[in-house]
Design a protein around this nucleic acid. Structure first.
Length: 442
RNA sequence: GCGACCGUAGCUCAGUUGGCAGAGCGCCAGGUUGUGGUCCUGGAUGUCGCGGGUUCGAGCCCCGUCGGUCGCCCCA
């Protein structure tokens, strides 16, 4: 093999494509059920769309390019949020409230591939704009859960870990972090497991003068509790009065009202790297995997991209980690071809005269809307032809043979083996009547 | 950007000290004048990832490179 696919990319053979469509269908289904409309943007954008938000340092993580002889720098999209913010800003006040959009784009990142991370991947993005209530937060999270549930996952398989920038800020103030050091404290909270203990303690001490700040932040990072168990226990764990966690109380009520409380867990260690989150932040985790999804509220971002101040909440869910998780849980077939559409009927010809009429008959059945396949073999061995029909996973075989002169064919149910002679003219109606509802447009 | 291990048929892999490139599965054809996933017989698999070096001779040893897996970094 002289040519290899570029590092970190995937070839989607039919079985792989079927798995991808299976996941994407769950995403689209959940989106539509929750009232979101699908959008998309360009696969590449002006490079500065990404440097504006993330700084020049992001460039080394991008696939960026300049057309030969051109003067503009572009980058393959590494995420959707800048495109979304650009699209929202461009329509400004003309958009309805709320605006509920979703997308299933591919993204490109110039990173070293490893488990759960590739250079090209698909990510479901769901965003609800124009509403700043905890109910909107809960609806977005419920949409994510709905897709996971459709794929066969249950509350015990994954956990939605939630925190709230406002509540954590309250807790940090409660342990003595001054307001101007809150940003640095968030960053420290996020890096709690990556720093050596002494370095962590040193940086924590630099944030304020009061007491054992390092111990307090470490305690905050470890504070978890089921959403259903109430806030008092969590507040006690964190070491602050429950009143400081007021933002969580409204969120808890909204999650409960949405019926997804049992999927959710408070986790004050969830910070998310991005500075632009302003309220709830959450990640969906499964044991032993990278985060399946992550998101939160970003009420200031659209304004940053030149639009009106627009409250917004959303998340992204990638196909790579989710695929790993589904495989490990036995929720994907070993052979993805099982997910491919099954033919309604497989047509075989038992003699030369029948063979001559086969193309016309196949064409008529297809025109009627049926999924029809046929053999390309020259053999008249009906046994072999039926073997091929069985392998195609067709529901029925139609055998064109001696009865054709009298206008009849043999219709065989490939699962039961039952077979009967039917008239050719009534064949399409007969097959349509027993065929399952077909996916249209996918 | 750093590190470890790996790359032989479509797939899973074997290949002895450097000496004719193999097996199973799958695929194709026949066994059979029209009834299926089994069975029997036969057939095709290939730039041993790619390039260079050492050698009489390289799948095997050496160097480089591309790709894979898994960590670190990063994680929008």
């Amino acid at each position: 093999m002289t040519h290899q696919a570029p590092k970190g990319t995937r070839d989607f053979y039919p079985a792989d494509m079927a798995v991808r469509r299976h996941i994407e269908s769950a995403w689209r289904g959940a989106s539509v059920r929750h009232g979101f409309d699908e959008i998309d943007g360009p696969t590449f954008e002006h490079l500065d769309l990404y440097t504006v938000k993330s700084g020049e340092g992001i460039v080394s993580e991008l696939f960026s390019f300049r057309r030969a002889g051109g003067e503009n720098d572009y980058a393959l999209r590494p995420e959707f949020t800048p495109t979304l913010a650009r699209m929202v800003a461009a329509r400004g006040a003309a958009l309805p409230v709320p605006t509920k959009w979703f997308a299933v784009p591919n993204f490109f990142r110039a990173e070293r591939p490893q488990r759960g991370r590739l250079r090209e991947f698909f990510q479901w993005n769901v965003d609800l704009l124009g509403v700043d209530t905890p109910g909107a937060d809960a609806e977005v999270i419920a949409t994510a859960i709905s897709a996971l549930e459709a794929l066969g996952l249950r509350a015990g398989d994954v956990t939605v870990k939630l925190s709230h920038r406002g509540a954590v800020a309250g807790a940090l103030r409660g342990v003595g972090v001054p307001d101007e050091q809150l940003g640095a404290a968030f960053a420290l909270l996020d890096r709690r497991d990556k720093l050596p203990p002494e370095e962590f303690a040193k940086r924590a001490a630099a944030l304020g003068a009061k007491g054992d700040l390092g111990g307090a932040i470490a305690k905050l990072a470890r504070a978890t509790a089921p959403v259903s168990s109430g806030l008092d226990a969590l507040a006690a764990d964190v070491g602050v009065p429950a009143a400081e966690l007021g933002a969580l109380e409204f969120l808890r009520d909204a999650l409960r009202a949405a019926g997804i409380e049992e999927w959710c867990q408070w986790d004050c260690g969830i910070v998310r790297g991005l500075a632009y989150y302003t309220g709830v932040v959450f990640e969906i985790h499964a044991a032993g995997e990278r985060a399946v999804a992550g998101g939160g509220r970003y009420d200031g971002l659209v304004e940053l991209f030149g639009g009106p101040r627009t409250p917004a909440v959303g998340f992204g869910m990638g196909d790579v980690v989710l695929g790993n998780l589904l495989r490990d849980k036995g929720l994907l077939p070993t052979d993805g071809t099982e997910l491919l559409p099954k033919p309604d009927v497989f047509v075989v010809a038992a003699n030369d005269a029948a063979s001559a009429q086969l193309p016309g008959i196949v064409s008529d059945l297809r025109r009627a809307g049926l999924h029809v396949r046929h053999s390309y073999k020259s053999t008249r061995n009906v046994g072999k032809l039926l073997g091929e029909a069985g392998k195609s996973r067709a529901r029925f075989a139609v055998i064109l043979g001696d009865g054709l002169a009298a206008g009849t064919v043999d219709l065989k149910d490939l699962a039961s083996g039952d077979q009967r002679s039917v008239s050719l003219t009534e064949l399409p109606t007969l097959l349509l009547a027993v065929s399952p509802i077909r996916a249209v447009g996918f």
